[in-house]
Amino acid sequence: MQFVLDTLVELIPGLWVSIQMAAVAIAVGIPLGFGAGLALNSPSKALRWITITLVEIFRGFPALLTLYLVYFGLTNIVTLGRFTAVMIAFGVTTAAYTAEIFRASIASVPKGQIEAAQSVALSRGQITSRIILPHVLNIAVPPIIGIAIITFQGTALAYAIGARELLGTAYSIGMIQFRVLEPLLLAALLYLLVTSLMAWLEILAERRVARLTGTNGNRVRARRRNRVGRQLRRDDRALGLAEARITP
């Protein structure tokens, strides 16, 4: 029991590193993803195709491969610390996953609202930041949290380049103590805990969206659908299924 407690205490710094990694990757990925979403809605065919290609590449590459690509590949050009490599690699991966969500949410802004904004003489930049962005933030938050969960779990891959995040910390405690299983299981429990917390936030966010946009009639159906298919839809979005569909 004492061993369990001691291990838990030793794991906390690792957990903190994992959370920080996920946070910076998300902080990098979301603006990039929003930019990509705007580009995917752009009238310029060339811009759309370039964006589609980039999104498909980073969505199709295993995240571990992207991490290696950045960590080992970019060392020829600049020397990267592990944390920076994780930030870039998972930031780009997160951007690729969120691009579709943003594209679909931007496309869902009613055309009339854009016209109304034009009719009161708002500029393009103002329309993007004051009309489109709030709308997107409202409806895209739950699926974005879904992607954030994937990003958080993905930070465990940083173990492979020797980062001292949660999994790496657990593994090295196990090596030192000659008791591998317990630290690993405790780390797994912590992953489970954070993931569940995020999933709970996702549910809250979904309720909020339902309250903001939903009519009463749809609510019951929406709730039932949520129960069965939340995880399903989350992954569908990440994979570009569901409403996420790239049509150049």
């Binding site: 999994l167 780390a187 569940s196």
Partner: peptide, 21 residues
């Protein structure tokens, strides 16, 4: 089962099975 299976990162599953168990 579903909660545990997907709440733990895949890489952690592999490490646990390969090194831990």
């Amino acid at each position: 089962w579903a909660w545990i299976a997907r709440g733990i990162p895949p890489i952690a599953w592999l490490i646990i099975i390969f090194f831990g168990l």
